[in-house]
């Protein structure tokens, strides 16, 4: 039997902010074209872990990692890896919608522009495709040259997702992408996540257990820097192995 293929693997991963040990020996593998959710109380390390997957913590003073993160079998902390290339492969969506103070169009094509792509047709096509994928095209196609800051919060977040898709990554990291949105916008984003997993590997950090239950295939529970339990979402929510997981998902602490 051939070894199962995993999109992302974390092996003996430890992370530190200065002397603070933020992630303790994390071992887990994430499946391709599936949604994996990270849950756990604030400060448990789930966001830190998410941000090690595209090296967003690199610019933080005093942050360092030990161990390996393999993307398609290749260590992303390896010496020959270029961070900008990595981030084109692993896109990211943040907690609060953070469009650039530019037009809608310029937001979507920003990733292409910094790669030096100037061909107007390519830019326009990519913009349309990405906006269609996030179901935003119909809403904004007539105002592409207006400021992105004029959109509603939910639209801004979908724009940020479109912006991430425009550079055609294979993995998308989402750091509590709906925590700043209203329920209707949240539902739209969740629908979108469901669509996107046909083509992308999605890792999502969420505070909302129902959301993890609704959108994810796998769920990982973190507690004070440790990966306590990692299983199929259904299994983890119906028959958790650890008492801590049980307590957390039933709302006994958090």
């Amino acid at each position: 039997m051939s070894k199962k293929f995993y999109k992302l693997e974390s092996k003996n991963l430890n992370a530190f902010y200065g002397s603070f040990h933020a992630l303790k020996n994390i071992n887990m593998a994430m499946e391709e074209k599936a949604v994996t959710a990270f849950i756990g109380p604030s400060g448990c390390g789930k966001s830190t872990f998410l941000r090690t997957l595209n090296r967003m913590n690199d610019y933080i003073d005093g942050f360092r990692v030990e161990g390996d993160i393999l993307l398609d079998g290749r260590d992303i902390y390896g010496r020959d890896v270029r961070v900008d290339e990595l981030r084109k492969e692993v896109g990211m969506v943040f907690q609060k919608p953070n469009p650039f103070p530019k037009t809608i169009f310029e937001n979507v094509v920003y990733g292409l522009r910094i790669q030096g792509i100037k061909d107007k047709r390519v830019l326009a096509e990519t913009a349309e495709n990405s906006l269609r994928q996030t179901a935003l095209w119909e809403e904004v196609k007539d105002k592409l040259d207006q400021s992105a800051l004029a959109l509603s919060g939910g639209q801004q977040q979908r724009l940020c997702i479109a912006r991430a898709l425009a550079i055609s990554p294979s993995v998308i990291l989402m750091d509590e992408p709906t925590s700043a949105l209203d329920p209707i916008s949240t539902a739209k984003i969740e629908e979108l996540i469901y669509e996107l997993k046909q083509a992308y590997t999605i890792i999502i950090v969420t505070h909302n257990m129902q959301q993890a239950g609704r959108v994810s295939d796998y769920t990982a529970f973190f507690y004070i820097g440790e990966l306590v339990e990692y299983a199929k979402t259904k299994t983890l929510f119906t028959s958790p192995k650890h008492e801590r997981t049980q307590n957390y998902i039933t709302g006994r602490f958090g």
């Binding site: 896109g91 953070n98 990733g111 910094i114 912006r163 991430a164």
Partner: peptide, 27 residues
């Protein structure tokens, strides 16, 4: 200039200088 703007730019594969020049300085 808020941190989130820099994050967004870095996450799209922009380098430090590209982020500074395209986002931080205009803002």
């Amino acid at each position: 200039v808020p941190r989130s703007i820099r994050d967004a730019s870095y996450a799209l594969g922009a380098s430090k200088w590209q982020t500074t020049w395209n986002q931080v300085l205009p803002a």
